[in-house]
């Protein structure tokens, strides 16, 4: 027995942490390159689709509920507005996600450069 199992485990833990740390840095580095390749047009289309999907689902839901409950045209009006709000919510969420990703990549690039 070279050493007691307790310190062996602690050592393993340390090495695992170190390995994970390098993996993390390498991953973020490659991630920033991939994001850079993603064109602005791609991001634009993604956000446009997010907005339209919300409105489309709102209109669809409104039409369906109207014909089911026989309340034409009130639910269509309400759900078109709700759908537009949902679309904007989607857009804000996507933008926040992209922004968080960009900040993360920037921070990773800075730590890599140091």
């Amino acid at each position: 027995m070279p050493s007691d199992p307790e310190s062996d485990l602690a050592d393993l833990e340390k090495r695992l942490k170190a390995a994970r740390g390098t993996g993390e840095a390498g991953r973020s580095g490659s991630g920033s390159g991939r994001e850079g390749a993603a064109s602005g047009a791609g991001i634009g289309l993604r956000i446009a689709v997010d907005l339209v999907a919300g409105v489309a689902v709102g209109v669809g839901l409104g039409l369906w509920l109207d014909s089911a409950l026989d309340t034409k045209p009130w639910l269509l009006l309400v759900f078109t507005i709700v759908g537009f709000c949902a679309g904007l919510l989607n857009v804000v969420r996507t933008a926040n996600q992209l922004e968080a990703k960009r900040k993360e990549d920037e921070a990773a690039a800075r730590t890599n450069a140091e």
């Binding site: 689902v57 949902a86 919510l89 989607n90």
Partner: peptide
């Protein structure tokens, strides 16, 4: 709004 957002 959240429901429609989820469905979209």
């Amino acid at each position: 709004i959240e429901l429609v957002s989820y469905l979209s």
